[in-house]
Amino acid sequence: MKIGVFALQGDFERHGEMLRQLGVEPVYVNRAAQLADLDALVLPGGESSTMVKLLDDEKMFDPLVEFAKTKSIFGTCAGTILLASGVTAPVQRSLQAMDISVERNAYGRQVDSSIRRVMPEQAFEERTSPGELEVVFIRAPIIRQVRGDARVLVSFDSQPILVEQGRHLAATFHPELTNDTRIHELFLAKLRQP
């Protein structure tokens, strides 16, 4: 199984380290041609507006939209903004890979960033292991709408913060900045499903 970590900008190395911990050697991806032999892709945290511009300039936007139609993507924070079908504050292009609407920087500025502890939904614990989850929000977005067959796996303050839909998984926080590997494990488990 070949898993790429999108490496245009952001904390991609942290995702790489976490995948390595789980026995997967990541491929750092910054060219469209590299997508062809990947089974899945991680979209890291960073600045989504910068990523969208680089995607446009490097003509990677449409190849990534196509990739999402058949392969799995896991996004955190900026990655989730890219996966969404609608982005506000301000309106921004996205891959439209998941039926979620996202508001950027919805908790406020950096001084409003926080580390919280939350109890995941039972469905999440059954598929990983039980126990609360440390969630790191950094200028995080809020998922304002979940539609279609998209399913909420973890919520905070009655807002969804981890959502899955089909092959894809989206978190508004940064599991890659913690020692808890469960969310990455969940993504890998999804890939192994027939």
Binding site: F12, G46, S113
Partner: peptide, 18 residues
């Protein structure tokens, strides 16, 4: 320490950028 991790977290997000 939690506060410090949060601060470094934003720095992490700026990596690879200008």
């Amino acid at each position: 320490d939690e506060d410090f991790r949060l601060k470094v977290g934003l720095a992490e997000m700026l990596k690879g950028g200008v």
